[in-house]
């Protein structure tokens, strides 16, 4: 299944794995790329030498292209921006800000640049700065979110720019992928679905929470602080939302979430950890290999589109 995005990324299927902090490490990224999708290592706030190591470990597992997500709020972002060039990474996606200052050197080095955007104006500015594509990410997504839904944001971004648009947020199966294509997307990016993949190093407790999640099990913390995060409801979110309602200081709120994603991903603490997951978690019923996930979503998408011709 080809599209303009598979051309840019050099992969077989227009299916990209999101660059989730802690979750998107080399094993997952390599498994996704090996399966014909496009795997991404999430640099998040990892030290620069760890990011380089992750890239090298990923290369050892696959000859296929993969990418790195650069979290622009990370104080190491400058260093990570250089590492992706030195290591010859195929593409970067960027989150949490404006990647314009790195654009020139990435382009000069042949690194494809794909900013994650949450509005049309941002998409247009990124296109003008030289982006190869954008990810239009709706607020159904897990983790840090914007405020517009995929269904509303995607067609508007598609109309606003000429570069290809990748849909993210609320997609976990072939129907979602087909719908995204109908709205003008050239590829999809999935996060939650890959958190629960067999090759994902996420703790079994966390994966079980996703597999057991129902449609209404996600909630959003931090609406009042300007940094909304979607995650599955648990003791942490209950306490957080209660404190948020009471108008507790940001410093106090941050105590709850300090290290809480690592606790969930690595230690399997599903009580006080942050179980970042999208609204679509309820659709995910089992832990499958990346290859099964990608082949399943692509064939599902083709079937749905075929049936409605």
């Amino acid at each position: 299944m080809k599209s303009s995005v598979t051309e840019i990324l050099g992969c077989e299927y227009p299916v990209i794995q999101g660059g989730m902090a802690w979750v998107a490490e080399h094993n997952l990224a390599a498994a996704v790329s090996e399966a014909g999708g496009f795997g991404i290592i999430g640099a998040a706030s990892a030290p620069a030498d760890i990011v380089r190591e992750e890239i090298r470990k990923c290369k050892a597992l696959t000859d296929k292209p993969f990418g790195v997500n650069v979290m622009l709020l990370n104080p190491n972002a400058d260093e990570v921006a250089d590492i992706v060039i030195e290591e010859g990474v195929r593409a970067v996606t960027t989150g949490a800000g404006n990647p314009a200052k790195y654009m020139e050197k990435w382009k000069a080095a042949g690194v494809k640049v794909i900013p994650v955007v949450a509005s049309c104006a941002m998409a247009v500015m990124m296109e003008r700065a030289g982006a190869d594509a954008v990810v239009a990410e709706g607020m159904e997504s897990g983790g840090h979110i914007g405020s517009t839904t995929t269904f509303a944001l995607l067609p508007q971004v598609v109309d606003a720019v000429k570069i290809p648009v990748i849909a993210a947020g609320g997609i976990a199966d072939g129907r979602g992928m087909a719908a995204a294509f109908m709205l003008g997307a050239q590829a999809v990016q999935m996060g939650t679905r890959f958190v629960a993949a067999k090759e994902s190093i996420v703790h079994a407790n966390y994966k079980e929470k996703i597999v057991k999640a129902k449609d209404i099990d996600s909630t959003v913390t931090g609406m009042s602080t300007g940094h909304p995060v979607r995650c599955l409801r648990n003791k942490m979110t209950r306490e957080y939302l209660k404190m948020e309602k009471e108008g507790v200081e940001l410093m106090e709120l941050e105590k709850l979430t300090l290290g809480s994603l690592k606790r969930a991903v690595i230690d399997g603490d599903v009580v006080t950890g942050t179980l970042m997951a999208g609204q679509i978690a309820g659709l995910i019923k089992s832990e499958e290999s990346c290859s099964d996930i990608i082949k399943g979503i692509v064939s599902g998408c083709e079937k749905v589109i075929g049936e409605y011709k």
Binding site: N98, A118, A121, M122, V124, M125, G146
Partner: peptide, 11 residues
């Protein structure tokens, strides 16, 4: 203003 507002404003 958040970062998205600034993009909007610049446009």
């Amino acid at each position: 203003a958040d970062s998205l507002d600034l993009f909007e404003l610049v446009m």
